[in-house]
Design a protein around this nucleic acid. Structure first.
Length: 271
DNA sequence: ATGCGGACCTGTTAGC
DNA sequence: TGCTAACAGGTCCGCA
């Protein structure tokens, strides 16, 4: 479900309801997410106020007074704020209940998501420590990608989806930004010029920003913290458009698998 | 060191 | 219509 725009849409959607609120209780119905939900979270977060809701890559950071809850939505995870008592349904694994009566509910059918608790600087957490720069910040520049990619034979699509290189570029937006930049997804990362990486960085930003403005992409089931779908699906130029005419040249969009992920491109517009 | 495949899960869809 | 296989928005780990 979520790439960076969906995670950010979720953050923006839920933050107003939980900022400044005090956690009253945490109910865990199924602890077995990608990693077991820590018992320390359940023990230590109640009684604390949520001071800030941040995002790092696709991780959401809930800063409390003493400690930080780190949450990843995985492939199918979803957060909602419920204003009143609502019966749990299938895959409602964790509830963070607030003194106000509101509940932050984590639902995740595939359980690829995870929830962690740290009392240190979350940036030093093992899962966050080695993350690359944010694509919407100043640190991501064409020359950075150019330098990092030298001597790498890996497909450029896998390269930009590597969170150690840059965070937040998932399978949809990798295909979309490579199309916009006119780069073939299978081209070796080390065989792309500085000028083309500069163009690619621009397109990664454009695609992510537009997706964010549309509230993310809803393919099947993504909804934001208020239950609304995202509308970026209407803007997709290549993703899931196999066989349909390229919107630039009219040739049919092609599909191939790169590192076990479906990849979409136009063989005429992308080299 | 880099890069690949496998693994973790359930739900939906395509194809026979 | 019903069964089965393939696939799905992520990413860590272990092995070559």
């Amino acid at each position: 479900m979520p790439e960076l725009p969906e995670v950010e849409t979720t953050r923006i959607g839920i933050a107003p309801y939980i900022l400044g609120e005090t956690v009253a209780r945490i109910t865990i119905r199924n602890r077995n997410l990608r990693w077991p939900v820590s018992r320390r979270l359940q023990r230590e977060l109640p009684g604390q106020q949520i001071r800030k809701v941040d995002r790092r890559g696709k991780y959401l950071l809930f800063h409390a007074e003493r400690g930080c809850m780190i949450l990843h939505l995985g492939m199918s995870g979803h957060l909602r704020v419920l204003q009143s008592k609502t019966a749990a349904t299938a895959h409602d694994h964790v509830d963070i209940e607030f003194a106000s009566g509101a509940t932050l509910r984590f639902n995740d059918p595939r359980r690829f998501g995870s929830i962690h608790w740290t009392m240190k600087d979350p940036a030093q957490h093992a899962l966050l420590k080695h993350l690359g720069p944010e694509p919407l910040g100043e640190d991501l520049q064409g020359d950075y990608l150019f330098q990092q990619s030298r001597k790498r034979r890996q497909a450029v699509k896998s390269f930009i989806m590597d969170s150690r290189i840059v965070v937040g570029v998932g399978n949809i937006y990798a295909s979309e930004s490579l199309f916009a930049a006119g780069i073939h997804p299978q081209r070796g990362a080390g065989r792309i010029s500085l000028a083309r990486y500069t163009a690619l960085v621009d397109e990664i930003r454009n695609v992510l920003k537009l997706a964010l403005a549309r509230g993310g992409t809803t393919l099947r089931d993504f909804v934001d913290g208020d239950g609304r779908p995202g509308y970026f699906r209407n803007e997709l130029k290549v993703y899931d458009r196999t066989g349909l005419p390229c919107l630039k040249c009219g040739q049919p969009i092609k599909q191939l698998r790169i590192a076990q992920r479906s990849s979409f491109y136009c063989s005429c517009c992308q080299r």
